[in-house]
Amino acid sequence: MKGVVFTEFLELVENEFGLEIVQKIIDECELETDGVYSSVGTYSHKDMFKMVGKLSEIKDIPVPTLLNIYGEYFFKTLSRDYPKFMEQDNLFSFLESIERYIHPEVLKLYPEAELPGFESEIKSKNEMILEYSSSRKMADLAVGLIKGAARYFNEEVEIEKVAETNEGEKVGLKILLI
C-alpha cells in the first residue's frame, strides 16, 4: 500500500484528534516501520488495518465509519495532487475513468502497485453501478472516496451496497444521484 495512504491518515488523525492519539496509535500497534511513513514509500496494508482498528478502539467509532470519513478526506488530497485526473465533466464519467484511465496511468509510475478494480456500468442519467474488487476488502474506503468525488463535482449521492462476495473482496455499489 502506497505510503500516501498512511501519511494522509495520520495527518487526518492529528488534525481531528491531536498528536497524542497519533502517538498512542503508533505506540500501541506493532508497526513494521515504527510509524515512519514517507508518501512515496510502500508499506504493508496490514499496518493500515492495525492503525484503523486501534483508532476505532480508542475513539469507539466503528471501522467502516472511520474508513468512510477517511475516504472523503483522502479524495481531497488526491484531487489536489493529481489535477490531470480531474479533467472530467461529471461524477459518473469520472468514476468510469478510474478503471479505464487513472489506474493504468498510476501503474506506469508504480508498476508494483496493487490497485482495486472499479468496473462501472451507467444505468441511467442518475444511476450507476460500480463494482469494487480488492483482496484488501476496503470497500468502505471506496465509498468514502466516492462521496469525496461527488462533493468535488457538486453532486449529491446515495451509495448502497447491493452485492458482496467473499467477505468484501467484491462489492457492488449502487450510486444514485439525488
Binding site: 503508533i26 514517507s38 508518501s39
Partner: peptide
C-alpha cells in the same frame, strides 16, 4: 515530547523519501 517524536518521525520519513 510529542512534537519531538513527531519531528523525529518526519526526519526519518524524509530521509527515507
Amino acid at each position: 515530547e510529542l512534537y519531538k517524536k513527531a519531528l523525529d518521525r518526519e526526519k526519518r520519513a524524509r530521509k527515507e523519501a
